[in-house]
């Protein structure tokens, strides 16, 4: 479609080159499935907790068997939601400058949100146990 791939790449990394598209399409679907499976694990885990107070939740996340899937859940979910929001913006925001701005904001906020979540889990999982 595009005559200048570098211009497309500047607007959307997803459009960087045509032969990446099939890979990207498959990756999006892998991330959908992994997000779904990890959320099933997440909700089942929450139901099995004795209560949802800070003590119960932090004890749960201190266990590597909970912290590791939680970290995967964060990566999978934020990657999936970033891709999804960018697809929506690319369909409805037609002006190149606006589109670039929205994609930038989505990328930055998704990375920031994922970063906050990851550091919080790591703080619980590898930090000193509460007295």
């Amino acid at each position: 479609m595009t005559t200048d791939p570098s211009a497309a790449a500047a607007i959307s990394p997803a459009a960087a080159s045509s032969h990446d598209a099939a890979h990207h399409w498959g990756l999006e679907r892998m991330l959908s499935v992994s997000t779904l499976l990890l959320f099933v694990w997440f909700f089942v885990s929450l139901l099995r907790l004795p209560a949802l107070d800070q003590q119960s939740v932090s004890e749960w996340l201190r266990n590597p068997l909970a912290a590791v899937p939680m970290l995967f859940l964060i990566v999978s979910t934020f990657w999936h939601l970033k891709d999804g929001l960018i697809v929506v913006v690319e369909d409805y925001v037609h002006e190149a400058g606006n589109r670039f701005g929205w994609v930038l904001v989505i990328n930055m906020l998704s990375l920031f949100g994922a970063g906050l979540a990851i550091v919080s889990v790591l703080k619980l999982a590898v930090g000193a146990a509460a007295a």
């Binding site: 800070q54 939740v57 932090s58 996340l61 979910t77 934020f78 939601l81 999804g84 929001l85 929506v88 949100g113 906050l116 979540a117 550091v119 919080s120 889990v121 703080k123 619980l124 930090g127």
Partner: peptide, 21 residues
């Protein structure tokens, strides 16, 4: 629903984890 989960849902989720930690 995807946009709602990606914004409101993600914000509540991150807030919860930061609050726990």
């Amino acid at each position: 629903t995807g946009a709602g989960l990606a914004t409101v849902g993600a914000a509540v989720f991150v807030w919860w984890l930061v609050a726990v930690a």
